[in-house]
Design a protein around this nucleic acid. Structure first.
Lengths: 139, 139
DNA sequence: CAAGATTGATTAATCAATCTTT
DNA sequence: AAAGATTGATTAATCAATCTTG
């Protein structure tokens, strides 16, 4: 994409920043999508229904089905049955999943500091404010 | 994703903004990826090799192959042979492609104004400056 | 019928491998 | 061998349709 002003500038930067983080995470066999799912599970602290996971990650259920498929294939997550509702599947972190979450989070924070650390405190505050304004207007 | 500070805030806003534009474009049967390809062709003003297109859109060649497949199926673009280099394929806009480019661009600009127009001139200048700073640091 | 989850199709991007032409 | 393009596999997301259970 171009570096023209406006929306495309925002998209270009965001995608470039994400690519940067993804490439760091890839060294640990993770993607940002996978890491955020692990984080949601870790935050929940207990087996979590896939539909609940979809809500927390604000995406569609079928996306979670496939993401959990891949996480399960990686051995980071396990599916369990829900004793209270036999329609539901619960996802839980495995030991490897907890390890991946903690190293992945460290990697992500490092990459994030490398990116946003190039801004001064004042610039970073300004950026946060502007993104908040935009965010309010969007949804 | 969460609305936590930092990188994720940037990604959330960017994705939301893009989704907004995509949904407007979808009414005309376009996506942002397709529109940007049409724009690159219109800007070039002449039949353009797919590898050249990949360079202009800064993506991988195989992506362009498939994007042009879809644009060709939509009747917006045609592949031609290159008389000077028989390895190359040239993409050209059809009449429908030129029309789609012009209406799509109007839709995009409208959507963009609806998004960024919520910011004051000063805020918009600030945002541009900050994105430039970030962009310099990233690549 | 509605909720939970899955499956299949499609878009969009990547990478690796391949095929043709230079 | 290198350049241009394509193909096939994979990740990630969406939507529509389906199946099971409530």
């Amino acid at each position: 994409m171009n570096q023209r002003a406006g929306l495309l500038a925002l998209l270009n930067i965001a995608y470039a920043a994400q690519a940067q983080v993804e490439s760091r995470l890839a060294d640990s066999g993770l993607s940002l999508a996978k890491l955020l799912a692990l984080e949601a599970l870790a935050d929940a602290g207990e087996p979590t229904a896939l539909s609940e996971l979809a809500a927390r990650l604000s995406c569609v259920k079928s996306n979670i089905t496939q993401l959990v498929d891949r996480l399960e294939a990686d051995g980071l997550v396990r599916r369990q049955f829900d004793a209270n509702d036999r329609r539901a599947r619960l996802a839980t972190l495995t030991a490897a999943g907890r390890r991946a979450f903690s190293t992945g989070t460290r990697v992500r924070q490092q990459a994030e500091r490398a990116l946003l650390g190039s801004l001064s405190d004042r610039d970073r505050r300004q950026l946060t404010t502007l993104l908040e304004k935009l965010g309010r207007r969007i949804r």
